[in-house]
Amino acid sequence: MARRKKIYEGKAKILYEGPEPGTYVQYFKDDATAFNAAKHDIIEGKGVLNNRLSEFFMNGLNEVGVPTHFIRRLNMREQLIRQVEIIPLEVIVRNRAAGSLSKRLGIPEGKVLPRPMVEFCYKDDGLGDPLVTEENIATFGWASQQDLDDMVSLALRVNDFLSGVFMAVGIRLIDFKIEIGRVYEGDYQRLILADEISPDSCRLWDIETGRKLDKDVFRQDLGSLSDAYSELARRLGVLPSNSTPITKPTLIN
């Protein structure tokens, strides 16, 4: 399709004007970043895999009644999505301690939490996406109490779905982050899942070996990010089971 006006460029994706009113084209880049982009590299084929993996998860969520912005995949790197008004919050769901939670509270990585924990971070790269409370959110008008209740409910439904999908292929979902947007239908608004779901936004550990299959491989210099993402895609059936590590992936339609 012909290139359209660029709307926004982030660390891993670009949004372009869509072919129809109320739509965007979301393009997945090969950039890998960590520590608020202090660490950066180009991983050939990463964007192709993340596009396909996010399609896989979004389609699955749509099928079980979790509303998302995803409409369809257009090609190897682009998908058509619904235009939404993004709430300026990252919603994090944690099933086990890891990452910043372990650092903040001194909890050993991998410790099982008594229940899934939902946290919010304010989306601002300049501030490092700081953790915020529900009181902060209400005070500054980023979301209403009803919005917060709906966001927590939606995030926990996503957690239930993803946990089951990953468990079935021998992977433990440690935590993940999502973004949520508002869509307007007449006088009413509703909240839907936006952005992406990919190994860039999840922590995923092999159940038997503890091997990490997510962006922590890049953050912590644990080996090849391409190998980790390809292994994840193979287990989920997105890549053929006999495929070699990606440079230019062959994907299953």
Results as ranks from 00 to 15, higher is better:
6 K>I: 15
7 I>P: 00
10 G>F: 05
17 E>T: 09
31 D>Q: 14
34 A>D: 08
36 N>D: 15
38 A>P: 01
44 E>H: 12
45 G>D: 09
47 G>L: 07
56 F>H: 09
56 F>G: 05
57 F>K: 03
58 M>E: 01
60 G>A: 10
61 L>G: 00
62 N>D: 14
64 V>K: 03
68 T>Q: 03
75 N>G: 07
76 M>D: 13
77 R>D: 03
84 V>T: 14
85 E>N: 15
85 E>H: 13
91 V>W: 03
94 R>A: 02
97 A>N: 07
99 G>W: 11
105 L>N: 08
106 G>N: 08
108 P>F: 06
113 L>V: 02
117 M>V: 13
117 M>D: 01
118 V>K: 03
125 D>C: 10
129 D>W: 14
132 V>T: 05
133 T>F: 07
135 E>I: 14
135 E>F: 08
136 N>L: 08
141 G>Y: 10
141 G>N: 09
144 S>A: 09
144 S>P: 01
146 Q>T: 15
146 Q>V: 10
149 D>F: 15
153 S>L: 13
155 A>N: 01
156 L>Q: 00
156 L>W: 00
160 D>T: 04
162 L>M: 13
167 M>C: 14
174 I>M: 09
181 G>Q: 08
185 E>Y: 04
187 D>G: 03
187 D>Q: 12
188 Y>D: 11
196 E>G: 13
196 E>S: 09
202 C>L: 10
204 L>A: 04
206 D>M: 11
209 T>Q: 09
209 T>F: 15
210 G>K: 07
220 Q>L: 14
220 Q>G: 03
220 Q>K: 15
221 D>Y: 14
222 L>F: 15
224 S>A: 05
225 L>Y: 06
226 S>M: 04
238 V>Y: 12
239 L>E: 06
243 S>H: 03
247 T>V: 11
248 K>H: 12
251 L>Y: 02
251 L>F: 11
252 I>S: 06
